Simulated scan of single mutants.
Amino acid sequence: MSKEFEIAREFEVDATPEQVWDAFTSGTGGWLWPMEAPEPREGGTGPFGSDVTVWDPPHRYTNRVENVEGISEQTLNQLDYTIEPRDEGRRAWVRYVHSGIFVDDWDNQYDGASKHTDFYLHTLRQYLTHFAGRPVTAFATFDGPEASKAPDAFAAVGRALGVTEDTPAGTRVTVQGADAVVDFRNPYFIGLRTDDALIRFFGRNHWGAPVGVSVHDFAPDADAKADETAWQGWLNGVFSRP
Results as ranks from 00 to 15, higher is better:
residue 108 N to V: 12
residue 108 N to M: 11
residue 109 Q to D: 07
residue 110 Y to D: 06
residue 110 Y to Q: 11
residue 110 Y to F: 12
residue 111 D to M: 10
residue 114 S to A: 13
residue 116 H to G: 11
residue 118 D to T: 12
residue 119 F to V: 10
residue 120 Y to I: 12
residue 121 L to A: 12
residue 121 L to E: 12
residue 121 L to M: 12
residue 121 L to N: 11
residue 122 H to A: 13
residue 123 T to S: 15
residue 125 R to C: 13
residue 126 Q to W: 07
residue 127 Y to E: 09
residue 128 L to E: 05
residue 128 L to W: 06
residue 128 L to G: 06
residue 130 H to E: 10
residue 131 F to W: 05
residue 131 F to I: 06
residue 132 A to Y: 05
residue 133 G to N: 07
residue 133 G to C: 09
residue 133 G to Q: 07
residue 134 R to I: 02
residue 136 V to G: 02
residue 137 T to K: 14
residue 137 T to S: 08
residue 139 F to E: 04
residue 139 F to N: 01
residue 139 F to W: 15
residue 139 F to T: 03
residue 140 A to R: 05
residue 140 A to P: 04
residue 141 T to I: 15
residue 141 T to W: 11
residue 141 T to M: 15
residue 142 F to C: 08
residue 143 D to Q: 15
residue 144 G to W: 03
residue 144 G to C: 04
residue 144 G to K: 01
residue 145 P to R: 05
residue 145 P to Q: 06
residue 145 P to V: 06
residue 148 S to V: 05
residue 149 K to D: 02
residue 153 A to R: 05
residue 155 A to T: 15
residue 155 A to L: 11
residue 156 A to V: 08
residue 157 V to A: 00
residue 157 V to P: 00
residue 157 V to K: 00
residue 157 V to G: 00
residue 158 G to I: 00
residue 161 L to F: 01
residue 162 G to L: 03
residue 162 G to P: 03
residue 162 G to K: 02
residue 162 G to Q: 03
residue 162 G to M: 04
residue 163 V to E: 02
residue 167 T to P: 02
residue 167 T to Y: 03
residue 168 P to V: 06
residue 168 P to W: 01
residue 169 A to N: 10
residue 169 A to W: 00
residue 172 R to V: 09
residue 173 V to M: 05
residue 174 T to I: 09
residue 174 T to Q: 12
residue 175 V to G: 00
residue 176 Q to C: 02
residue 178 A to N: 04
residue 178 A to K: 10
residue 180 A to G: 00
residue 181 V to E: 13
residue 183 D to S: 07
residue 184 F to G: 00
residue 184 F to N: 01
residue 184 F to W: 14
residue 185 R to D: 02
residue 185 R to N: 12
residue 185 R to A: 00
residue 186 N to I: 02
residue 188 Y to I: 05
residue 188 Y to V: 09
residue 188 Y to M: 10
residue 189 F to Q: 08
residue 191 G to I: 05
residue 193 R to F: 07
residue 194 T to L: 03
residue 197 A to D: 04
residue 197 A to E: 12
residue 198 L to D: 04
residue 198 L to W: 04
residue 199 I to P: 04
residue 201 F to I: 07
residue 204 R to K: 14
residue 205 N to G: 10
residue 208 G to R: 09
residue 209 A to I: 06
residue 211 V to T: 14
residue 211 V to H: 08
residue 213 V to R: 10
residue 214 S to A: 15
residue 215 V to D: 08
residue 216 H to E: 11
residue 217 D to T: 07
residue 217 D to Y: 07
residue 220 P to S: 09
residue 220 P to G: 10
residue 221 D to A: 11
residue 221 D to F: 06
residue 221 D to Y: 08
residue 221 D to G: 07
residue 221 D to T: 13
residue 222 A to R: 06
residue 223 D to W: 06
residue 223 D to S: 14
residue 223 D to C: 09
residue 224 A to G: 10
residue 224 A to V: 09
residue 224 A to P: 09
residue 226 A to N: 10
residue 228 E to I: 00
residue 229 T to E: 14
residue 229 T to M: 00
residue 230 A to I: 06
residue 232 Q to S: 15
residue 232 Q to N: 10
residue 233 G to C: 05
residue 234 W to Q: 08
residue 235 L to C: 08
